[in-house]
């Protein structure tokens, strides 16, 4: 007999036990593990989806904020640029004005200094020139020259026009001081006599003459009658010449300052010229006028 009924029963029991064992040790744990994993994956997926949605929302928010910030920044930048431009212009104008005033002051000071220097130079030149001339003439003065000078003086007395002569005569009142004749050197007696003769001719009377030596006359003779003077002297020439030269030099000294100022205006740097294109010529003209 192929079927052993005890074995059949035993195997039936064995199989049922095996079913329980498998259920206990295999299917339940495995299925639970799978379920747990699936739950976990589902939870993670849901979590990820939630996070993604959150991230999406955050991204949207950030994008909006970014756009707003960009706009704000652009506005602020343009405002700042405008403010900076205005400020720049203001500063430039200020700087230009300051530079202009400084330049004007400098030019004024320069021109004053130049003027002063020029005057001083002219003065000194003139003094030196006349000092030299005086010295040279003083060195050259001698008796021969005095004699000639005396002749010239006498000649002049004789050549006096009638008006001057009348005037001189009228000043010489009787009982007045003697007529004073000043000369650089002591006049020798012949010449004194010649002068006395000439004076007698002039006043048509015998008058008292007093002779005096005056070194400041250099070479010359001077006649003084009651405060009126008549004479000839190189010093007179020099004084007249000094006067005329002084007049000549004072006029060119002022005229010289004008070309110098114009030159200064031309020598200003190109940049300054460019930045103040309209300004300098007008000012230089005004300065020239001033």
């Amino acid at each position: 007999m192929l079927i052993n009924w005890f074995t059949v029963g035993a195997q039936l029991l064995n199989f049922l036990i095996l079913v329980w064992l498998m259920k206990r040790f295999l299917y339940r744990p495995i299925l639970d593990a799978i379920d747990a994993r699936e739950e976990r994956i589902a939870a993670e997926l849901a979590d990820a989806a939630a996070k993604q949605a959150e991230a999406e929302q955050a991204r949207e928010t950030f994008r909006d904020k970014n756009t707003a910030l960009d706009q704000q920044r652009a506005t602020l930048l343009s405002q700042a640029a405008q403010t900076a431009e205005v400020e720049r212009r203001r500063l430039l104008d200020e700087a230009r004005d300051a530079a202009d005033s400084l330049s004007a002051k400098r030019r004024e000071a320069l021109s004053q200094e130049q003027e002063r220097l020029s005057e001083e130079l002219v003065q000194r030149t003139r003094d030196e020139v006349f000092a030299i001339a005086r010295k040279a003439l003083a060195d050259l003065a001698c008796a021969g020259l005095d004699a000639r000078m005396c002749e010239v003086f006498v000649q002049r007395l004789q050549d006096l026009d009638s008006a001057t002569r009348d005037e001189l005569v009228s000043t010489l009142t009787p009982g007045s001081d003697p007529v004073l004749v000043s000369s650089a050197f002591d006049l020798p007696p012949p010449q004194r006599r010649a002068i006395q003769v000439a004076l007698a001719d002039l006043f048509a009377a015998e008058i008292q003459v007093r002779f005096e030596t005056a070194a400041q006359l250099i070479n010359g003779i001077e006649l003084s009658v009651n405060g009126r003077k008549l004479g000839w002297s190189i010093a007179d020439y020099l004084t007249a010449m000094e006067k005329s030269v002084g007049e000549l030099l004072t006029v060119p000294a002022v005229a010289d300052a004008e070309p110098d100022t114009a030159h200064d205006a031309e020598s200003t740097p190109p940049a300054a010229e460019a930045s103040t294109a309209a300004g300098p010529p007008e000012r230089s003209e005004s300065e020239q006028r001033g």
């Binding site: 052993n4 035993a10 195997q11 039936l12």
Partner: peptide
Amino acid sequence: SLSTTVALAL
């Protein structure tokens, strides 16, 4: 064994 298979079939 037929006994086993019979048990399973049962």
